[in-house]
């Protein structure tokens, strides 16, 4: 009996978008960075956000875990409205993992401690429990043997993979990637993209701001194109890269392809 109820609930959850951003607007002083930006993401979807620099794409995904406040519109994540309510923000941050362009690992903690800190402090895991989970995740991203090192001793690609493991240790429902390969040396881009690819295959809901066309083509369910703080196009990768509708998308693609 419980089984049928769970299945029914799962179906409802699957049909409902896990992330809804409706008419989100944001200003830095007088400058408007986001203009009624809209986005809906379903559980398990991989959405790549592209756009010229300054188009507001990073700012947009940073609003989804309240790293950036927004002034107008509404954002709902897994049914929880993202308002100024601190409790809601804390809950949402637990459900939304984030990977940064600059990795932002904690340099004073070992790789293992980077991954276990939040599970121990926030999810109240015991140290052995957290270590066990961390080891599994570090193994999954291929850096288990570096667990006792400090982040400064690792290459950029390795650091970014630790950052992914660190975010995954909180068992988030959504993962946000803010240009995860932009500050990497070219030969390290692939190892990070491989990890993200396998993460997508495992069914993780992902929002990725990136310029990696190959990754978008191969992995993304949808490509969202932003310009001047607006979502201009929201379509499949096949359509976006072959027949973009908007003039600005065409111009952008002609510059990066």
């Amino acid at each position: 009996m419980t089984n049928t109820i769970e299945t029914a609930e799962n179906e409802i959850i699957e049909n409902q978008p896990i992330l809804i951003a409706h008419d989100v607007s944001k200003w830095f002083g007088k400058f408007q960075v986001l203009r009624n930006a809209n986005l809906q993401v379903k559980a398990g979807e991989v959405v790549v956000i592209m756009g010229p620099s300054g188009s507001g794409k990073s700012t947009f995904i940073r609003t989804f875990n309240a790293l950036e406040p927004y002034q107008e519109g509404r954002i709902t994540i897994d049914g929880i409205p993202l308002t100024e309510d601190i409790q809601n923000i804390d809950q949402i941050r637990r459900d939304v993992g984030m990977v940064f362009q600059q990795f932002n690992l904690f340099p004073h903690l070992t790789v293992l401690e980077n991954v276990t800190l939040a599970p121990i402090q926030v999810r109240k895991f015991t140290k052995p429990q957290a270590n066990e989970i961390a080891r599994q995740l570090l193994d999954r991203v291929g850096i288990l043997e570096q667990a006792q090192k400090y982040p400064g001793k690792l290459s950029g690609g390795q650091q970014q993979r630790v950052a992914i493991a660190r975010a995954l240790a909180m068992e988030p429902k959504i993962m946000l990637f803010d240009e995860p390969t932009s500050s990497l040396d070219p030969e390290m881009v692939r190892e990070v993209l491989d990890v993200m690819r396998s993460l997508a295959k495992s069914g993780m809901t992902m929002l990725v701001v990136t310029h990696e066309v190959g990754f978008a083509r191969e992995v993304a369910d949808r490509v969202v194109f932003m310009d001047a703080g607006q979502v201009i196009e929201d379509t499949t990768p096949a359509e976006f890269f072959t027949q973009p509708k908007e003039a600005r998308s065409k111009l952008f693609l002609s510059q990066i392809l």
Partner: peptide, 23 residues
């Protein structure tokens, strides 16, 4: 300290006191 340190801590769900104390 770079701003990214506290952003990373907050995005992991650490509250402001935990962020101060551990990061």
């Amino acid at each position: 300290l770079p701003l990214g340190q506290s952003e990373a801590a907050r995005s992991l769900g650490l509250n402001s006191i935990q962020t101060l104390r551990f990061i």
